[in-house]
Simulated scan of single mutants.
Amino acid sequence: MSLLIASSRVSLPTQYLDLLRYSNGGEGPLALEPLWFALYSTSECIELFHSDSAVATSFPGFVFFGTNGGLEMIGFAITTDAPWRIVMLDPIAGTSSCVEIAPDISAFIRQIGVEG
């Protein structure tokens, strides 16, 4: 966890870090579109959005922490002040496919594990 925090380009919300401490990865139902959520593990997050990967370079306004189990990625839209909106986007279609799925991480977490 400390490596994730140290390498992050933003100050990650406490609620998100608590979620990772509770479940370092995993997947299940989500009572919001896309109805399924797969949380990236700490090591996957470091590799994905804290490195010089294509995702970090192509989507600098986002910090992704999961997926819908398909192509879409789920993460923070960091282009505004915190609390950041939780969004889903298709990395192939680009930022034009971005949709808000929750107003912030607290609202998002309350819907994890709940059938939609």
Rank of each mutant, 00 (worst) to 15 (best):
Y22A: 13
T79H: 10
N24F: 01
V87N: 03
S97R: 06
I92H: 03
G113T: 07
V10P: 00
T80A: 12
I5P: 00
I86L: 11
P83D: 02
S2W: 01
A31S: 15
V99N: 12
A56D: 01
V10N: 03
E33C: 01
F37C: 00
D104Q: 08
F108R: 03
V63P: 00
A56E: 04
V63M: 07
L3T: 14
S97V: 02
I74G: 04
F64R: 08
P34Q: 11
T42I: 15
A77Y: 10
S11G: 08
V55I: 13
R85M: 10
L71E: 14
M1G: 09
N24P: 01
S41C: 08
L12P: 10
T67K: 04
D18M: 03
D18S: 07
A56Y: 00
N24E: 06
C45K: 00
A6S: 13
E27K: 09
M88K: 11
S11P: 05
E72P: 02
S7M: 13
P60Y: 02
I101N: 08
L3K: 14
P91K: 07
F49S: 00
S41E: 07
T42H: 04
G94F: 02
C98L: 15
V114D: 04
P29C: 09
L19W: 14
I5K: 11
G116Q: 11
N24G: 02
F62L: 13
P83V: 02
D104F: 07
V114S: 10
I86Y: 10
F49C: 01
V114G: 05
P91Y: 08
I74V: 13
I78M: 01
F108G: 03
F65C: 07
E44T: 13
M88Q: 13
P60S: 10
F37V: 00
T79F: 05
L39V: 02
S97K: 06
S11R: 14
A56F: 00
S106T: 14
G69N: 05
F76Q: 05
I74Y: 04
V99Q: 15
G25C: 08
A82Y: 11
A38V: 10
Y16N: 07
E44A: 14
R85K: 15
E47T: 10
F49E: 00
L20T: 02
A93H: 11
F76D: 07
I105K: 09
W36I: 08
S41H: 07
A107P: 05
P103H: 13
P91W: 11
F64H: 11
F49P: 00
V99K: 15
Y22C: 08
A54T: 03
T57M: 07
H50L: 06
E44Y: 06
G66T: 02
R21M: 12
A54D: 08
L89C: 12
R21C: 12
S97E: 06
S43C: 05
T79N: 13
V55E: 01
A54C: 03
V99A: 14
I78N: 01
A56Q: 04
A54L: 03
E44F: 05
G61T: 11
W36Q: 12
A54E: 05
P91D: 13
F59G: 07
P29W: 06
F37D: 01
G25H: 07
L32R: 06
S53E: 02
S106Q: 12
V114I: 13
V63C: 09
L89P: 01
L17N: 04
